[in-house]
Deep mutational scan, measured.
Amino acid sequence: MIVFVRFNSSHGFPVEVDSDTSIFQLKEVVAKRQGVPADQLRVIFAGKELRNDWTVQNCDLDQQSIVHIVQRPWRKGQEMNATGGDDPRNAAGGCEREPQSLTRVDLSSSVLPGDSVGLAVILHTDSRKDSPPAGSPAGRSIYNSFYVYCKGPCQRVQPGKLRVQCSTCRQATLTLTQGPSCWDDVLIPNRMSGECQSPHCPGTSAEFFFKCGAHPTSDKETSVALHLIATNSRNITCITCTDVRSPVLVFQCNSRHVICLDCFHLYCVTRLNDRQFVHDPQLGYSLPCVAGCPNSLIKELHHFRILGEEQYNRYQQYGAEECVLQMGGVLCPRPGCGAGLLPEPDQRKVTCEGGNGLGCGFAFCRECKEAYHEGECSAVFEASGTTTQAYRVDERAAEQARWEAASKETIKKTTKPCPRCHVPVEKNGGCMHMKCPQPQCRLEWCWNCGCEWNRVCMGDHWFDV
């Protein structure tokens, strides 16, 4: 396979590697080409510095992935760790964990309700045991953590790749202090920090972006993250068709209702045909949960890209028209025109101005929308079919299609509260000796007794199943 190397943020060049090629071997190839010592090179990928003893497969490097290699003399205490030698983080029983690669970060837990604080980093599902597709590297999971809308060759929703760059020099040479644990960490600028490894760059702020994971991409090709779309790892039924499908869209209502993408497309087109989208002054033209839940309008309007190009163009047109109407304007009634106009409040005669090729020149009556006339309008008909009709959803289907309910059931079956801080902690095999993952707590306690870890627990039921 081919990976592209950008040395000291210059133009990239291809390097041929195998899945079992080590990072140090990659350094040696680059060092020979650039005429520099291999031990002064640092390989940066997806916000993480890659260790010498890791392989291309370990690092989730795919065909035509772009890695950054910078030349920086080692500072005291760094060289041993980078070589894969006596790194205290690798000691058996050590409590410190390697910062998780962005290629394996899962933010789907952050669609849980606000009262489930902490689960994004504490609760991990076991539903990723799908067998890898044919042709994928051994052991590589097909679980997708992110979804994007690819405006490039795909023109559809695709699995996405999370990447990070330095907000100062805009190069992907920043190593994160810690990985993101929720969508806010990724979507809110300057929320996460790190250290830029580019020479002479003092940058410390992280800037995240997404790429389409279905095809090789260049540095400049980015895609918009659709953070309401998630892999259906909890096997929730769709609120409309009641099938279990994946991926799904999880509405931001209190129940976190789930809808499959085909039904979401149908829901949007139906509402669009009836012009029953909601115009929100802050958000724009949007839709609420299909069950009509309060405070559930979709905030990231790129989710409506699921409509496809033709329907999305209609959505944008109707949204612009609705904006004009909300501002007190009118639409030209001549067939084939429909231009938005903003006449004076007491102006009865409205002319669709033909300047700049935008208007048709038609003069019409503001009251009856017919060709302009003197005197009273002959008839004014009330528009028919403008009443909002509820999208029919079966109550039982709505009850079963809740992301929140599956989460709470998982928590109930696989977790116990920490005796000190009461945060839910998952036990997935292993011994009875637990350690609270909350940095402010870190209590060592017994899963069996529910009390602080002691010699009695150690001698009596340390390794009970």
Rank of each mutant, 00 (worst) to 15 (best):
F24V: 07
R305P: 02
L283M: 10
H279K: 13
I229M: 10
A38S: 09
R396T: 11
T168S: 10
Q57H: 07
I306H: 03
Y315Q: 04
K427P: 14
C260M: 01
L341Q: 12
A38D: 03
Q347N: 11
Y149V: 03
Q252F: 03
S141E: 14
C241G: 01
C241R: 00
R6E: 04
A291G: 08
S167K: 13
C451V: 15
A138L: 12
K412V: 11
T386M: 14
G430E: 08
L123S: 15
L261K: 02
A371L: 08
L174V: 12
V56G: 01
A138P: 12
D394H: 06
S136F: 12
C196F: 00
R392Q: 09
S141N: 11
D274C: 04
L341C: 12
C59F: 03
C268N: 01
T231Q: 10
G450I: 03
H303N: 02
D262E: 09
P333E: 03
Q316C: 11
V56E: 00
Q40A: 08
C368S: 02
D60N: 15
W74I: 10
T55Y: 04
R314K: 04
S116P: 12
F381L: 10
R455S: 15
Q158V: 08
M192G: 03
W447I: 05
C418T: 01
Q40F: 05
C169T: 00
T177Q: 13
N90Y: 13
N90Q: 12
R191L: 06
K413H: 15
I142W: 10
G308Y: 04
C421L: 01
A371H: 10
W74T: 13
P417T: 09
Q158W: 03
D126E: 10
D87K: 11
L162C: 07
R72K: 14
Q317A: 14
G77Y: 12
R72N: 15
A383T: 12
D130M: 10
K211N: 13
S233G: 07
L358C: 14
T387C: 10
L187C: 06
F463R: 01
Y143E: 05
V43N: 01
L107R: 14
K76A: 14
G430V: 04
C377P: 02
V380Q: 06
G12H: 08
H265Q: 07
L341S: 12
Q57C: 07
A390E: 15
C360T: 03
S286M: 01
I69A: 08
C377D: 02
C150F: 01
M434N: 04
Q178M: 07
R156L: 06
Q171G: 10
D460Q: 15
K151W: 15
P202G: 13
T103M: 09
A390V: 11
H11K: 04
A320L: 09
Q326F: 06
V67E: 00
F304Y: 07
Q71R: 08
V30E: 01
Q63F: 07
W183R: 00
G84C: 12
H11A: 05
T177S: 14
P189L: 05
D87M: 10
W403R: 03
E221T: 08
A92L: 14
E309H: 14
Q171L: 06
G292K: 06
E207F: 05
I239F: 05
M432A: 05
S167D: 07
